[in-house]
Write a protein that binds this DNA or RNA. Structure first.
Lengths: 190, 190
DNA sequence: GATTTTTTGTGATGTATGTCAATTTTGAAA
DNA sequence: TTTCAAAATTGACATACATCACAAAAAATC
């Protein structure tokens, strides 16, 4: 476990510096969790007690529409954060599903604990501020890609941006992430 | 000007508390700017020196594709923040345009000053952290709406969510925000 | 290793939405 | 008030992509 916590510390220290004392405060506010492939991290209607940092593994966050079709909001793997941020932030029942595409391990942070360490250790507030800002920028780019690009060029773009991901994830899920039917994706060239 | 700064303070204090001393530090790091309708706040290829909090007015943030078509990333009005966050964060040339749909006034915050007040006044780091988080949640919902909803229901949804905006903005811009042609939007019922 | 399930590929067909063009309406400027 | 430019509407037609159906391939499970 010490090794895993060390990875988390590295993750923080990519953005901000922490003293050993600060780190000891921070790390004591996380819980460990491990799930097998196909198990759920978050479900619609259930409480969303945590934000999760992924130690290892791969998950998908998605919603299901009236017709039962799955729409993927995010893939998240090692070193990513994932949650139903909306439900988590407002402490409301989940609005999306998150489940494991591979056996996965997480460090879990409750809202209470997050606010606690953000106010006790200012560097942590800055860490999450900067992380959240990066996330915002990413989502803006995804929105632009949905507005400006054809399904095929979104696919090419993703192939370039996250080639490793494509290999770990069935194409029908990639299709669902891109907002295109799996049949159409299958007709694309590369 | 004191009145306008007071609005900004209120904006911060909706999320975090600030002592008078803290506020004096914070406010000294903002600059005032005023633009007329049709003037640019940010242009592609130009430096993006600031993030802007809108005191009054209305702007659109958009990119222009190879065919010269405009795609609206965001409308921003009173009490909103706007910038080319990506270019701003990395201090690179702008990748989008932001211009005024109405005469507008702004408080401007440089990257250097933002980082300064975030590290000098922890409450400010928390303010931006929480704001950024809210922004992230909003963008996630917009992505879901682009993935799951038809153009028509996205329009209805927007009518409900931001009725005031619709009245201040020509429909062809709404169309561009929704990712639909103005002709198609014009054929929708309500 | 055999069997079942999941994933992928491909054809035929339907549909939402885009594009082009012309007209009307609205609103801003003089 | 008149004039002019921008915005909105409407029709005809084009197209990217969805859907349905079925078959093949690959992967998971027993």
């Amino acid at each position: 476990m010490e090794e895993k916590l060390h990875l988390l510390r590295q993750h923080f220290e990519e953005i901000v510096s922490l003293t050993d004392d600060e780190w000891n405060i921070v790390k004591s506010h996380f819980e460990f969790k491990s799930l097998k492939k196909h198990q759920f991290l978050i479900q619609v209607g259930q409480p969303v007690a945590f934000e999760y940092w992924i130690i290892k593994g791969l998950v998908k966050a998605y919603s299901i529409d009236e017709k039962g079709k799955e729409h993927i909001l995010q893939f998240a793997m090692e070193d990513y954060w994932v949650s139903d941020h909306c439900a988590f932030q407002h402490q409301e029942p989940g609005t999306i599903f998150v489940d494991c595409l591979e056996d996965s391990e997480f460090f879990c942070l409750s809202l209470e604990n997050r606010e606690k360490i953000c106010f006790e250790v200012p560097a942590v507030a800055n860490f999450f501020r900067i992380k959240s800002n990066h996330g915002y920028i990413n989502l803006q780019q995804r929105i632009l890609s949905l507005l400006t690009m054809t399904a095929e060029s979104r696919y090419e773009y993703l192939l370039n941006k996250l080639p490793k991901l494509i290999q770990r994830v069935p194409k029908k899920l990639i299709a669902s992430y891109l907002g295109v039917s799996r049949e159409t994706l299958s007709r694309f060239s590369s």
